[in-house]
Nucleic acid binder design. Sequence first.
DNA 1: GAAACTGTGTGACCTACATCACAATTGAAA
DNA 2: TTTCAATTGTGATGTAGGTCACACAGTTTC
Lengths: 190, 190
Amino acid sequence: MQPKEILKEHVSKTASLTDEQFDYFFSHFTYKTFKKGQTIIGEGDKVDCEYFVLSGYLKSFFINDDMKMFILQFAMPTWWASDYNALYSGERATISLDCITDAEVLCLTGQDREKLCNEIHASEHFFRWRTNKGYVAAQKRLLSFMNNNAKRRYEELLAQYPTLYNVVPKQLIASYLGVSRETLSRLYHS
Amino acid sequence: MQPKEILKEHVSKTASLTDEQFDYFFSHFTYKTFKKGQTIIGEGDKVDCEYFVLSGYLKSFFINDDMKMFILQFAMPTWWASDYNALYSGERATISLDCITDAEVLCLTGQDREKLCNEIHASEHFFRWRTNKGYVAAQKRLLSFMNNNAKRRYEELLAQYPTLYNVVPKQLIASYLGVSRETLSRLYHS
DNA sequence: GAAACTGTGTGACCTACATCACAATTGAAA
DNA sequence: TTTCAATTGTGATGTAGGTCACACAGTTTC
């Protein structure tokens, strides 16, 4: 399937744009490819874009003072990713984004997103619903952190995204769950 | 200050509505008061509304199978609260909402919000930005959970919302931080 | 002014998970 | 195929924070 069709199918689930509107909408996206391990957003960068994943897996993450990594999100095909705080506020990136596998993405600048939201009411509708979905998901994960131990969080993650298990190194899964890789290893060997 | 002015000032920070547009916007809100301890949304309820706080303090929370409470959000004046998952999806509430103090709120039904978003482009803009802010805040809190111990999370919370300390029982602060009340007590007595 | 309730402090003990150290395995590069 | 790095497994030990138990406020209720 072509990038344009992938995005169109995705957007049409929450907003109705006419074909001409969608053509215009799509014309603001830039197609890019990245290699496994490549950095898309690095800490301290100016953040211009958000990214729609066509193929491959990304991770968005934070590194603390002890160089420990915490994964905020795995981004898979048809997911969006960026440092939304930096993108909306103009501040420098505190969240990084890079490629777990080779990846194809569509880039949309923050400026173009605002322009599209202004010019096409339906596109603002789309972004509102998408963001709300992200908000609800983040809240769910917060509750899971408070309520569940590492084992249950691990089972939850695998139940929701079984494909991750084969694609993503266990270290990264541990960073997502907020446990050490040693603990994770012990969890699924018992 | 009147409810209408409070809301107007709040909305105008992110969206420009004309006076007539705002009058129309405001006409969809219902003013309500609640007493300390009253439930606004209970588990299993059908969720029709979201709530804009005019005065007082609310909490949104989740109760697990062991009857342990986890607080997702304290809502203070000019904050919004609801079970957004239930409100957007039509499912029953899993998140409850009640009053820590006497409170005045403005209620907006999900239906009216969608109607307003349709009819007034600027109001959709407002809700997109508000939701994005919530999303970014939830992500920050997630990172804080992964990165910081209970003591630092406690200090962070007090630094951000000093008023909470006097208004909100320590038990609830513990539930927000995801620690037991005993641990919290030990944290600030040392 | 008892009585009952809600909120808080504090000690003793327990457990989930972190950390450190090193071995084993896999996988890419040469 | 050999080599080097990245990834994973596993034991020993440390610790933050949970749980239970009980004491001691304030505050509301009759």
